[in-house]
């Protein structure tokens, strides 16, 4: 094998990576533009005033706080449910195992609009009103698979013997859980939880279907979507976009570093 890539391959690969990242950098640039009504390039002037403006805008804070709350609750639910399934799936084979694994990936394999419209059709049947809670319900459904993927990969990598070894040495199921399983599964769960948080925090498609009307169910992505369709102060939207990006970027990076030594690097499958 040649150990060095042909120049044309290097250039196209590099250009592809640039194509993935330049647009996001532009978002940052436009947060400093002095032009508020259009996306003129290059920006006529640079200013930092939009950060202050965004900070003082009363309509940004409630969606931000709601998004954080929703992501937090959805992550907790997904962590519990995802861990339970991965524990069951890593054990002995049982009838319906393959069907169950299909069921878990379904909410993410089907287009978001399907999950959204399905919940939209079903929630009134359960006599529930659309609210922030129904948003959590929708988010948790597609976050389960994220936690599950991380946990089950770690279960697979754990030398199956160590759980048996713990029992062999006299530990009951609860001692094995606390002393052996949790320390070994912990980083995978943390990584899965962080990815689930990032995913929930900026989710918009399912959210639009499961949110109630009015400010009480307006998450930050829904606020952003409104601004995209009916722009007001465009640079403020850029400031918010930066915040959203940072809030998802950091957990993703964290998840990567938590699991990079293993074969199951987080995020390989969304």
């Amino acid at each position: 094998m040649r150990s060095d890539a042909p120049l044309s391959l290097k250039l196209t690969a590099g250009a592809g990576l640039l194509f993935l990242h330049l647009p996001i950098l532009l978002i940052f640039l436009y947060a400093f533009t002095s032009e508020e009504r259009s996306f003129a390039f290059p920006p006529p002037g640079l200013t930092t005033k939009w950060f202050a403006v965004a900070w003082n805008r009363a309509d940004i804070w409630p969606p931000l706080i709601l998004s954080l709350q929703v992501a937090f609750l959805a992550t907790i639910l997904a962590l519990i449910l995802g861990t339970l399934i991965s524990a069951a799936m890593s054990g002995a084979k049982f009838w319906g195992r393959d069907q169950l694994s299909l069921l878990i990936i379904l909410p993410i394999a089907l287009p978001g609009v399907i999950t959204g419209i399905a919940l939209r059709a079903a929630i009134p049947m359960l006599h529930l009103d659309f609210s922030a809670l129904t948003i959590v319900l929708g988010h948790a459904t597609f976050c389960i698979v994220i936690v599950y993927n991380n946990a089950v990969a770690r279960f697979r990598r754990l030398s199956g013997g160590i759980l048996e070894a713990s029992a062999d040495l006299g530990a009951n199921a609860f001692q094995t859980f606390r002393h052996i399983l949790m320390p070994n599964l912990g980083t995978a769960l943390l990584a899965g939880g962080m990815l689930a948080f990032a995913l929930s925090f900026d989710e918009v498609i399912v959210t639009t279907f499961t949110a109630g009307v009015g400010a009480a169910s307006k998450t930050l992505p829904i606020w952003m979507l409104d601004e995209l369709i009916r722009p007001r102060q465009r640079p403020v939207t850029n400031v918010v976009a930066m915040v959203v990006f940072a809030t998802t970027f950091l957990p993703i990076l964290g998840a990567y570093y938590l699991t990079r030594d293993g074969a199951e690097t987080a995020g390989a499958g969304k």
Binding site: L20, V244, T248, I252, L253, G267
Partner: peptide, 19 residues
């Protein structure tokens, strides 16, 4: 370089292209 854009905000990416 591939994973971060995969996971990072969908809406932010769409917005970037509006610009």
């Amino acid at each position: 370089g591939v994973m971060l854009p995969l996971w990072s905000s969908y809406l932010v990416k769409v917005y970037a292209f509006k610009l």
